[in-house]
């Protein structure tokens, strides 16, 4: 019990997590799958949320809770992919916590490889559905979270056809409000195809979605700004 507060954010023997060795370059491929196949994206997403948030120090709790700053300082971000296979299943890749080393432990990052390596399938047959990571508390997506999933459109496209219709590529940051017993209390999501930033919250058995922001592109298509909005998720059309 006491040693659960040890210095390392993750166990070296945790088979769910992959990372490069010391002084090795960042991993550019992440293996999969981590869990059993899922029949729906929702099942995969919720399983991923619970899996990631229960990893060591993935949750710092609420900002107004005692010792939040300490828990944040020792926290870790984990990242992974949900992908879709030729067997018409949704899969979760393994997790990684590779990141830039910050001597002061103030920078919490996660570097997710662009490519999933599932040896059961040819690389080109895998469809990329959602890039996942955790935030240590309920904190909006960062600019880099948005920039990099947009850049990922170049690798994987805006949309993929699945057995359930069209899946739009998105990125998600899970959070939990309870460090002691982490549960999937919500996530922030950005969808490049619609430019929407959504916030999903889970309380008392209900899931609620609100559009909290919108990415606005300049005419040159390179510059962008982020506009704060308050709208229902299904009405957030972009002009």
């Amino acid at each position: 019990m006491l040693f659960a507060l040890g210095c390392s954010s993750t166990s070296a023997t945790d088979r769910d997590i992959v990372r490069p060795g010391p002084d090795e370059p960042y991993l550019e491929r992440i293996p999969g799958p981590l869990l059993e196949p899922f029949n729906s994206f929702q099942d995969a997403l919720l399983a991923a949320c619970n899996k990631i948030l229960t990893k060591p120090n993935a949750v710092a709790g609420r900002r107004d809770q005692p010792s939040f700053d300490v828990y944040w300082r020792v926290g870790s971000e984990y990242c992974a992919w949900i992908y879709y296979t030729p067997d018409q299943k949704y899969e979760l890749s393994k997790l990684t916590d590779q990141s830039r080393v910050d001597p002061a432990d103030r920078s919490k990052t996660c570097y997710l490889p662009s490519i999933v390596e599932d040896r059961r399938y040819p690389p080109d047959s895998i469809k990329y559905i959602c890039a996942l990571h955790n935030h240590l508390y309920d904190d909006p997506l960062s600019v880099n979270d948005i920039r990099f999933i947009v850049s990922e459109v170049h690798n994987h496209g805006f949309e993929s056809e699945t057995k359930d219709g069209v899946s739009r590529l998105s990125t998600v940051a899970f959070f939990s409000n309870d460090r002691g017993a982490p549960t999937c209390d919500g996530f922030h999501q950005y969808i490049p195809a619609t430019s929407q930033i959504l916030k999903w919250t889970h309380a008392q058995g209900r899931w609620v979605c609100e559009q909290t922001g919108r990415v606005v592109w300049a005419e040159d298509g390179v510059r962008f700004s982020i506009e704060s909005t308050h709208a229902p998720c299904s009405k957030g059309a972009v002009p």
């Binding site: 929702q42 929407q196 979605c209 609100e210 998720c233």
Partner: peptide, 21 residues
């Protein structure tokens, strides 16, 4: 501001969005 969130069925978690750009 007051939230404008909408309750979403469990079967649609993470799968609601507006029109594409």
């Amino acid at each position: 501001q007051e939230t404008l969130g909408e309750e979403v069925p469990a079967s649609l978690i993470g799968a609601v969005s507006g029109e594409p750009m």
